[in-house]
């Protein structure tokens, strides 16, 4: 193939057409909409159609029972056909989503913070939160492609003309890898479109620590085999859900990608520590990424960045509601 000649083969075109026909048969169609992201039609219970006739995706809500009862088996992503991102502005077709799986985190107190790590994590304290739901998986490239295809949305990096944007990271076979190179604003736009929101910092930590308030999603002892981080040696993102879920059934709360949360990067209540980076206009980032080690993947570890312009190769997100 000559440089710049990326025309698909006729076989692929025919497969594409067949796929479209299949989608028609399933009744799963997507209108092209304006570039400005708007909330996706509300999703109801499993299999129910939405008001405009679209077949809604099927979010699975997993109710978490008290801690003395073993958690249910974690949800497993269904297979998604491999695809590559469409260029901006191209005609689009819908591909079934697979990661729209949410976990319900019950109301109640949990232990927030850590007195034995970085000072920005202190003081450890009990925090009471109402029930909420959080995505079991980090938002994937394929998820984000759905959003972009449906809305025409352009990320900050794309608007800046940067080649290094989410499409660049979305290479063949990376449908189920977490989307990266997205700003907080990009992440928020996605969640809004999906009828969700970004989790708060407290919600994120509660969901990460699981029903037993562990320091890591799997327990209180560092284990490099339990997540995609620096010591695992992968040195890149991997498919979401590749490592065991925590006690709530939430995946990848350590490593793979750091995650935007919707809280200003400021001191915790009761803290007198003055991190020079604290700034009410910044947003917290949690969970550590694919090149982080023990300290940075603690469920209590805190990071922060400029929400408008920070879009790196190890920052993604998940939604809550």
């Amino acid at each position: 193939m000559r440089n710049g000649d990326h025309r698909p083969s006729y076989v692929i075109v025919i497969l594409f057409a067949l796929l479209s026909l299949l989608l028609v048969a399933c009744g799963d169609v997507v209108d092209q909409v304006e570039a400005t992201p708007t909330p996706r039609p509300a999703q109801t219970s499993q299999g129910a159609g939405s008001a405009n006739g679209q077949a809604a995706r099927s979010p699975t809500i997993i109710a978490i029972r008290p801690t003395d009862i073993p958690p249910p088996p974690p949800p497993t992503p269904t297979a998604r056909s491999t695809r590559t991102p469409l260029p901006a502005g191209a005609a689009t077709v819908a591909v079934p989503a697979i990661t729209d799986v949410m976990v319900e985190i019950p109301a109640g107190t949990f232990s927030l913070g850590n007195d034995n790590s970085d000072p920005n994590e202190a003081p450890a304290q009990q925090m009471d939160l109402p029930a909420f739901k959080i995505d079991a998986y980090e938002v994937t490239n394929a998820d984000f492609a759905d959003f972009v295809q449906a809305t025409g949305y352009q990320t900050y990096r794309e608007r800046q003309g940067s080649q290094q944007n989410w499409r660049w990271a979305y290479k063949d076979g990376k449908d189920n890898h977490p989307v990266v190179f997205v700003t907080f604003d990009d992440a928020k736009a996605f969640c809004t479109w999906a009828g969700k929101r970004l989790p708060t910092e407290f919600e994120w930590e509660k969901a990460a620590r699981g029903p037993k308030n562990f320091l890591y999603p799997w327990g209180n002892t560092y284990d490099a085999t339990k997540f995609n981080g620096k010591d695992g040696g992968l040195r890149q993102t991997t498919s979401v859900g590749s490592y065991p879920a925590n006690g709530y059934g939430v995946f990848d709360m350590a490593g793979n990608v750091k995650e935007w949360v919707d809280s200003p990067y400021l001191a915790y209540p009761g803290s007198s520590y003055k991190d020079p980076h604290y700034n009410a206009s910044y947003r917290s980032i949690r969970g550590g990424g694919w090149f982080d080690g023990a300290k940075y993947v603690l469920s209590t570890n805190r990071n922060g960045g400029d929400p408008k312009i920070t879009a790196n190769d190890d920052i993604g997100f998940r939604c809550a509601k």
Binding site: G4, D5, H6, R7, P8, I12, F16, T84, P85, L86, P87, A90, Q163, R167, W168, A169, Y170, K171
Partner: peptide, 11 residues
């Protein structure tokens, strides 16, 4: 279209 790609490789 010669260069507009559906299955475009990443830049």
């Amino acid at each position: 279209l010669p260069a507009v790609t559906v299955l475009a490789a990443p830049p």
